[in-house]
């Protein structure tokens, strides 16, 4: 990586955690390290390798200096806007509507909005934790797919709320449910011991993936029938809210454990 690219990326990473003056101070120091390395005859690539990746540098600084990753002002505004977006969507879900396409669009907005509020939207989460792009994305997709099946299975068997039948067959979905639970547990535990900040985010991602995909099961099982489709969407919303609560709880638990271990 070249010096300018490294510094540019580092600036982006640091912005999430540090005040502007402190960010600039750190960047001046790193510029100095590049200059000092160059005077020893090292190439930019070698210097970068010794310094570590920009997300890693930012994470290391944040942890060592005891900075929480706070909501910046920008994030607060975004959260506020997202919360406003939620109101019509929630009303829409609660009142119901006959048009599957509109319901789909509403659910997408809902998902993005909720994740923005929580600050766990994938690009943001990646930037904050320094986790690689692919682990985050693959974790989303893999666990998302598995949790969809789990959600479909759960709701197909549930008669408590009498919300109808899900589309997935119980046997297949049951196996997938067990597999997804195990995957989430393994992910959480492994990452917890490796680095608590990443364990936190990845477990949040794993559990939160229910929200992204619970809709998918409902959509695919009910595309032919608009009424059933909308009933499915309402189920998806309940699953989603449940998943969010669970996520928040587990996240808090892991963060707390992480603090105690340190």
């Amino acid at each position: 990586m070249e010096k300018q690219k490294f510094l540019g990326e580092l600036r982006k990473e640091l912005r999430w955690t540090f005040a502007k003056e402190e960010t600039e101070d750190i960047l001046r120091d790193y510029e100095g390290f590049f200059a000092a390395g160059a005077s020893e005859g090292k190439t930019d690539a070698e210097i970068c390798a010794d310094l570590g990746s920009p997300p890693g540098v930012a994470l290391s600084l944040a942890e060592t200096l005891g900075k929480k990753r706070p909501f910046s002002r920008k994030a607060a505004i975004r959260a506020g806007a997202a919360a406003l977006l939620l109101i019509p969507n929630l009303l829409y879900f609660l009142l119901g509507n006959g048009n599957p396409a509109v319901t789909c669009a509403a659910l997408l907005v809902e998902t993005a909005a909720l994740w923005s509020v929580l600050g766990f939207f994938p690009p943001v989460a990646r930037r904050r934790t320094g986790a690689g792009r692919w682990p985050v994305l693959c974790g989303h997709l893999l666990l998302g797919g598995l949790t969809t099946a789990a959600a479909a299975w759960f709701w197909s068997r549930s008669e408590v709320l009498a919300l109808g039948n899900g589309g997935a067959s119980v046997d297949t979905a049951g196996i997938l449910f067990a597999a997804s639970a195990a995957a989430i547990a393994v992910f959480g535990i492994v990452w917890f011991y490796k680095r608590s900040a990443q364990a936190f985010t990845l477990t949040v991602h794993a559990l939160g993936a229910v929200g992204y995909v619970s809709a998918a099961g409902a959509v695919f099982s009910r595309l032919s029938d608009p009424d059933a489709f909308n009933a499915g969407m309402r189920e998806a919303l309940w699953i989603y809210l449940f998943a969010l609560l669970l996520t928040a709880f587990v996240a808090a638990l892991i963060r707390d454990l992480g603090k105690r271990v340190k």
């Binding site: 750190i26 310094l51 890693g56 540098v57 290391s60 600084l61 200096l65």
Partner: peptide, 12 residues
């Protein structure tokens, strides 16, 4: 250990 780890310690 990455050099940046030591930089972070220096800052602290």
């Amino acid at each position: 250990v990455n050099e940046s780890t030591f930089y972070a310690i220096l800052r602290r």
